[in-house]
């Protein structure tokens, strides 16, 4: 099946993993979106920043997955932060009430600062 172009890049940095996503997430590639990110969230004590700055579209299942990533990561003693969310996607996050559950930061710098103010629980590398 032809899928919508999607790039998920994970970089282990100093004390955290930066996951950058580019493209659109729809029903053609949402399973790819899940399978590339969820294992990182299942690793104990992971500190993850999901950079959404390159995302042009997210469907309902991908919003649900954002919550699953957050829940899974925190259940395993980790931290899951979301940053650089485009306005139209942030609007839907608020519509779903996800902003009350996810930690959404305006910029990558804000997300890194937020990690710096929390206790380092371990490394996922």
């Amino acid at each position: 099946m032809t899928t919508c172009p999607l790039t998920v890049r994970a970089e282990d940095q100093d004390g955290f993993t930066l996951i950058s996503v580019e493209g659109a997430v729809d029903t053609s590639n949402v399973e790819e979106f899940r399978s590339l990110i969820m294992p990182r969230c299942e690793t104990p004590n992971s500190r993850i920043i999901l950079d959404c700055g390159g995302i042009s579209y997210m469907n309902s299942r991908s919003f649900a997955l954002l919550y699953r990533f957050h829940h899974t990561c925190e259940s395993n003693g980790g931290i899951f932060l979301v940053c650089c969310v485009p306005l139209k996607i942030e609007h839907i996050i608020k519509l779903l009430g996800l902003n009350a559950m996810l930690k959404v930061l305006p910029t990558l710098e804000d997300a890194i600062d937020t990690l710096g103010t929390t206790d380092k629980g371990g490394s996922d590398s």
Partner: peptide
């Protein structure tokens, strides 16, 4: 098919 969705959007 799912690949039609990008065009529709």
């Amino acid at each position: 098919e799912a690949h039609s969705l990008a065009l529709i959007r």
